[in-house]
């Protein structure tokens, strides 16, 4: 019950502030719109680079929203109140991750296929793209939560966050882009997707615990 209440609270905050939830999505769209302008509009070239670029854009747009995950609540003191509420810290983190994914990861699932079509990705690869986003973006939010919790209260937290989190995103990037590449080339994407699911299965229980440990230190 606590979990659902926390998620609803975060979602309501995100919706009331309005812009916050859409900034990441807009960033994702803009980065991908720049691609044909930079490398030229030939469909074959675009189709070749689309899987990797869609995923790089997804990585960066998730990263963009991470800094706000705990920092603002740390500053206004509501994180202290949550800590005093007696709800397990890992559960609070899990709720925050869920809300963060719903506001930044889920929109990517809706925008991804449209932008992929604009980048001339073959239609056969669209389903795999959706699956890779569905399996990959929660891992990005989970692992990102560790980084976000670590830099709470740090100097120049935003730049530091990119330095900490991007190396940890490498496996997701490789398997996700690999899956779409394989599907576009007519090869089975299943092994890549299974590895991607494996990343999610590992980070789902462990990341909230690590982020909770880091957050506890920030509040001491």
């Amino acid at each position: 019950m606590n979990f659902i209440a926390l998620v609803r609270r975060d979602l309501r905050l995100a919706l009331r502030q309005g812009t916050d939830a859409f900034v990441s999505l807009l960033f994702f769209v803009l980065v991908l719109v720049l691609v044909p302008l930079a490398i030229g509009p030939e469909p074959q070239l675009l189709a070749r680079v689309a899987p990797g670029l869609i995923w790089i854009a997804a990585l960066l747009s998730v990263l963009l929203s991470l800094e706000r995950m705990f920092q603002s609540e740390y500053e206004d003191g509501s994180l202290d109140q949550l800590a005093l509420s007696g709800i397990p810290f890992a559960l609070i983190v899990a709720a925050k991750v869920t809300a963060q994914w719903l506001t930044t990861g889920l929109p990517l699932l809706l925008a991804g296929p449209i932008l992929a079509a604009m980048l001339a990705l073959p239609n056969d690869a669209q389903a795999v793209l959706l699956l890779s986003l569905l399996l990959g973006t929660p891992t990005l939010s989970l692992v990102g939560a560790i980084g976000a919790a670590l830099v709470v209260g740090a100097r120049r937290g935003g730049v530091l966050l990119a330095l900490l989190v991007l190396p940890l995103y490498v496996p997701v990037l490789i398997f996700a882009a690999g899956a779409i590449d394989a599907a576009a080339a007519g090869l089975p994407a299943r092994p890549h997707l299974l590895l991607l699911a494996g990343c999610l299965a590992v980070s789902l229980p462990l990341a909230p615990l690590a982020a909770a440990a880091a957050l506890k230190d920030a509040l001491r």
């Binding site: 560790i146 670590l150 830099v151 209260g153 740090a154 100097r155 120049r156 937290g157 530091l160 330095l163 900490l164 991007l166 190396p167 940890l168 690590a210 440990a213 880091a214 230190d217 920030a218 001491r220």
Partner: peptide
Amino acid sequence: FLYVGYMALAGAFDDEERGHRAGAVLVLT
């Protein structure tokens, strides 16, 4: 990058202890 990230994180806090603990979580991750 993990080594460099640790060094950047450990030095990013005014409270030295906090830098150590945050760094420890990062190293374990």
